Amino acid sequence: MSLRKSINQLRAKVFERVIREKVIKCTMYALVGIYLSLLIIGHIVASIATGYTLWDNWISDLGGIKYTPAPYLYDIACIFAGSLTLPFAFYLEHFLSPDLNKTTRMRIRIVESAFIFGFVGSLSYIGVGIFSEDRSYYGLHGLMSELAFGGFTLSALFTGWFAMLYETKIPKILGFYGAFGPLTFLILFIVIGNPLFEWLLLFAILLWIIPLSISIFHER
């Protein structure tokens, strides 16, 4: 038995025992509700306390005591979101290509790329919360932020590309947005480099993840 087949069998066993659809479905719904609630509450608190605005302040400022009396709200939101999107990355890989031993090489490469970048994005977002703006040892906060945005964006690109090439429950139009939407805002953020475009990039990623979850778990 080849090493690849052994690894795939191990992943299949882990999926069967841990990554169950009902669990992941509840996890993603909880993610949307709790993460958005913490983000909105954190923004309101910062706005009232220090005049925080989307166009003048970076997202990470929500985790800085200089800009908000409750930086832990954003820290918890990041750790929570990163932790809950990790199992979704595994589920999405299985959803896109349930049997990696019976598919084309190109299909495997796209799915694996989507998984790897999604995994990196999730882990890095946990890091954003742990190494907040107030705890940015050795510049780790900036690094984690870059890896999180980059990971989620590239995961969306490959997942969207896959949805456009193959038949899935993911609508083609959503696949097109996944491939080009977040990437466009990432490029704009890099080029323009102001807080508003960082927020727009976050919204672009959320506008991918939320409809993606709904389309995958929607019963037909």
Rank of each mutant, 00 (worst) to 15 (best):
residue 195 P to C: 09
residue 104 T to Q: 06
residue 22 K to I: 09
residue 83 S to P: 04
residue 195 P to H: 04
residue 125 Y to G: 00
residue 16 E to K: 10
residue 102 K to W: 00
residue 172 K to C: 06
residue 60 S to E: 08
residue 24 I to L: 11
residue 67 Y to D: 11
residue 26 C to P: 10
residue 104 T to K: 06
residue 162 F to K: 11
residue 110 I to P: 01
residue 142 G to K: 03
residue 210 I to H: 07
residue 102 K to E: 09
residue 194 N to T: 15
residue 14 V to E: 13
residue 192 I to N: 11
residue 25 K to W: 10
residue 206 L to Q: 08
residue 141 H to L: 05
residue 5 K to Y: 12
residue 95 F to H: 05
residue 4 R to N: 13
residue 204 A to V: 06
residue 27 T to Q: 02
residue 48 I to C: 07
residue 126 I to V: 12
residue 75 D to F: 08
residue 215 S to R: 06
residue 106 M to P: 05
residue 36 L to A: 02
residue 32 V to D: 02
residue 76 I to S: 09
residue 164 M to V: 06
residue 162 F to G: 10
residue 64 G to Y: 12
residue 97 S to G: 02
residue 200 L to F: 13
residue 31 L to C: 08
residue 200 L to A: 13
residue 143 L to Y: 14
residue 70 A to N: 10
residue 64 G to K: 15
residue 93 E to F: 07
residue 127 G to S: 02
residue 45 V to D: 01
residue 17 R to Y: 14
residue 103 T to R: 11
residue 165 L to N: 11
residue 14 V to H: 09
residue 115 F to K: 00
residue 49 A to V: 07
residue 65 I to Y: 15
residue 152 F to N: 10
residue 210 I to Y: 09
residue 176 F to R: 11
residue 165 L to E: 12
residue 27 T to S: 13
residue 88 F to E: 04
residue 128 V to W: 01
residue 93 E to C: 00
residue 70 A to P: 07
residue 35 Y to G: 01
residue 178 G to A: 12
residue 77 A to C: 00
residue 172 K to I: 06
residue 23 V to Y: 14
residue 145 S to K: 07
residue 112 E to M: 04
residue 174 L to H: 11
residue 78 C to E: 12
residue 114 A to H: 00
residue 151 G to P: 11
residue 202 L to Q: 13
residue 34 I to F: 13
residue 219 E to C: 03
residue 43 H to E: 08
residue 12 A to P: 01
residue 113 S to W: 05
residue 108 I to Y: 12
residue 77 A to H: 11
residue 79 I to M: 13
residue 128 V to N: 00
residue 20 R to K: 14
residue 38 L to Q: 04
residue 151 G to N: 05
residue 8 N to L: 14
residue 18 V to P: 05
residue 78 C to P: 08
residue 159 T to N: 03
residue 96 L to Y: 03
residue 26 C to Y: 15
residue 169 K to I: 07
residue 108 I to A: 05
residue 47 S to L: 05
residue 164 M to G: 05
residue 220 R to T: 08
residue 130 I to R: 03
residue 76 I to M: 06
residue 71 P to G: 12
residue 35 Y to E: 01
residue 7 I to G: 02
residue 96 L to I: 07
residue 13 K to R: 14
residue 50 T to E: 03
residue 49 A to D: 15
residue 56 D to R: 12
residue 50 T to F: 01
residue 73 L to P: 04
residue 170 I to D: 03
residue 212 L to T: 10
residue 185 F to G: 09
residue 121 G to S: 06
residue 81 A to C: 07
residue 166 Y to T: 07
residue 155 S to H: 04
residue 183 L to M: 14
residue 56 D to L: 09
residue 90 F to G: 03
residue 130 I to G: 01
residue 48 I to R: 10
residue 40 I to V: 15
residue 41 I to L: 10
residue 109 R to G: 02
residue 198 E to Q: 15
residue 98 P to T: 00
residue 178 G to S: 13
residue 122 S to E: 04
residue 187 I to Q: 14
residue 89 A to G: 01
residue 38 L to V: 03
residue 6 S to V: 11
residue 195 P to R: 02
residue 23 V to E: 10
residue 105 R to E: 14
residue 24 I to F: 06
residue 50 T to L: 02
residue 23 V to H: 05
residue 174 L to G: 06
residue 175 G to S: 05
residue 170 I to E: 04
residue 10 L to G: 02
residue 190 I to E: 13
residue 161 W to F: 12
residue 21 E to P: 13
residue 168 T to N: 04
residue 106 M to W: 06
residue 49 A to K: 10
residue 201 L to G: 12
residue 154 L to F: 15
residue 140 L to C: 02
